[in-house]
Amino acid sequence: MANYGEYFKALREAKGLTLREVERATQVSNAYLSQLESGKIKQPSPINLHKLAQLYEVRYEVLMERVGYPIPQSEDHSDLKKENPLLTKFGRITDEEEKELLGYLKFIRNRKK
């Protein structure tokens, strides 16, 4: 995916985190995170993606696929539906829809502060 940087930024903002806070929580440098979000890193480290997946509470496979790593496809998606019940209710969503949903989540969380 050519424009994965916006997705990473939306995930971070939906959690209400700054780059420095992500750096402290994951031990991934602020500079690396900034370059990741701007799309300057062409092949992100799987180790760093794993750390970010844990912090952002997103499946590691999702992040790997977003940045272009091949992911084996399984016929059984029941484990994915258990982790994300929204898939059961709404089905697959587009990248643009997901980005919009993350932006709305950020808006809701900021409103509560």
Rank of each mutant, 00 (worst) to 15 (best):
P72Y: 00
R66F: 09
D76Q: 09
L17P: 15
L19F: 04
D79C: 06
F90G: 07
K42R: 15
K112T: 12
V22T: 07
A31M: 11
A31S: 13
K82F: 06
N84H: 08
F107N: 12
V58S: 08
I108S: 08
D76E: 09
E61N: 10
P72S: 09
L102E: 04
E98K: 13
L86G: 12
N48F: 14
G39Y: 08
L102M: 05
E13C: 09
K40A: 06
G103W: 00
E97G: 07
P72I: 05
E57A: 12
N48P: 06
H77N: 14
E83T: 05
G68L: 05
T18G: 09
K9S: 09
R109M: 05
G91Q: 02
G16P: 15
L36P: 10
Y32W: 01
L36H: 03
Y7K: 09
L87W: 00
L49W: 10
L80N: 10
R59N: 12
L101A: 15
E97V: 04
P70L: 04
H50E: 13
P85K: 01
R20Q: 14
M1E: 09
K40N: 12
I47F: 15
K40S: 05
E21F: 00
R20N: 14
K113M: 07
K51L: 10
N84T: 03
G16W: 01
E23Y: 00
K82L: 10
S34I: 02
I41V: 13
G5V: 02
P46G: 05
R66V: 08
Q73I: 11
D76A: 05
Q35C: 04
Y4A: 05
L86W: 00
M64R: 13
L33F: 02
E98P: 03
I108G: 08
Y7L: 11
A2F: 15
T88D: 08
I71Q: 11
V58K: 07
Y32Q: 03
G5S: 03
R24I: 06
L33M: 05
E75K: 15
L63E: 01
E65L: 11
G103S: 11
R111C: 06
K89Q: 10
D76I: 04
